[in-house]
């Protein structure tokens, strides 16, 4: 118990340091802009950013509410992630199981994975148009690879003794998969999903900057054309907060559900 309370107090201490760090950054920002050491066109004042945010909340941006922009982006993100999840996980499991199947898919995935998504985005737009389809396809491709690789690696690193133990306890091949292999892989699949969300999110903003008429990424790019750096700031801060929020949710789930990992 003593050790636990010690760990908590340490945790609180680090959290405190992080908060102080953010506050200091905002103060520096306020000072720099207050004395106009930098052109206000480049860096708006914190208060201006806040009031732009309030205006955006009530009036929206270019015909759509701020919420709609965010919702459009999230719709693209989650549709793509969902599609990636239901394809990458089964295929990853299969490829982890059989080296032959892996040999079929490996060259394709290894080839496109390191490509910058925007390189093949041109093709996708050509094929699917500038609406949601091309964006979702792009996000799907960027989210697919990390999830696939994490799942296949999880199957490959399964301890042989664990599988032998369950077979000796009378598990059939099917039961082995359902009760041992799948649960053994869950934590790594979730870690893969976190990576995949990160990559997809980065791609999303880029995709909306190339061809879009709504979405949070588009809003930032469009605002920059009119030198509205205050709106750009609002957009960037919102994107950051959403990303941190999504990842903390998954981390929280991971910590609760998979407390046994690595022990």
């Amino acid at each position: 118990m003593e050790k636990l309370s010690f760990e908590i107090s340490k945790e609180v201490k680090f959290r405190g340091i992080s908060i102080v760090s953010v506050v200091v950054l905002v103060i520096i920002w306020a000072i720099v802009t207050h004395f106009e050491w930098v052109d206000p066109y480049f860096i708006p004042k914190p208060l201006e950013v806040w009031s732009s945010f309030v205006v955006l909340l009530s009036e929206g941006y270019k015909g759509a509410s701020l919420f709609t922009h965010i919702a459009n982006s999230m719709y693209r993100l989650f549709t793509a992630l969902f599609l990636a999840f239901i394809t990458a996980v089964p295929l990853g499991l299969l490829c982890g199981y059989s080296k032959y199947i892996r040999a079929i898919f490996d060259p394709i995935i290894e080839f496109y994975r390191p490509l910058p998504p925007l390189a093949y985005y041109a093709l996708l737009v050509l094929w699917l148009g500038i609406e949601n389809e091309s964006k979702i396809a792009l996000l799907f491709l960027s989210g697919f690879a990390p999830l696939f690789i994490a799942t296949a690696a999880a199957v490959e690193k399964l301890p042989a003794d664990r599988m032998n133990a369950s077979l000796s306890l009378g598990a059939t091949k099917r039961q082995l998969f359902q009760y041992i292999i799948l649960p053994s892989c869950y934590p790594d699949i979730l870690t893969g999903l976190r990576t995949s969300i990160g990559v997809t999110y980065a791609t999303l903003v880029a995709a909306e900057m190339v061809a879009a008429t709504n979405g949070i990424g588009w809003m930032v790019l469009d605002a920059s054309r009119y030198l509205r750096s205050d709106i750009v700031f609002v957009g960037i801060i919102l994107m950051g907060i959403i990303a941190i929020g999504l990842d903390s949710l998954l981390r929280f789930y991971q910590a609760r559900r998979f407390s046994w990992v690595g022990k």
Binding site: R162, N164, A165, G170, S184, W260
Partner: peptide
Amino acid sequence: KPISEIGVVFQHHNLFPW
């Protein structure tokens, strides 16, 4: 192949951790 008539206890406990 492994059969349930023969049980095995390993050097490492090998309990299913979850």
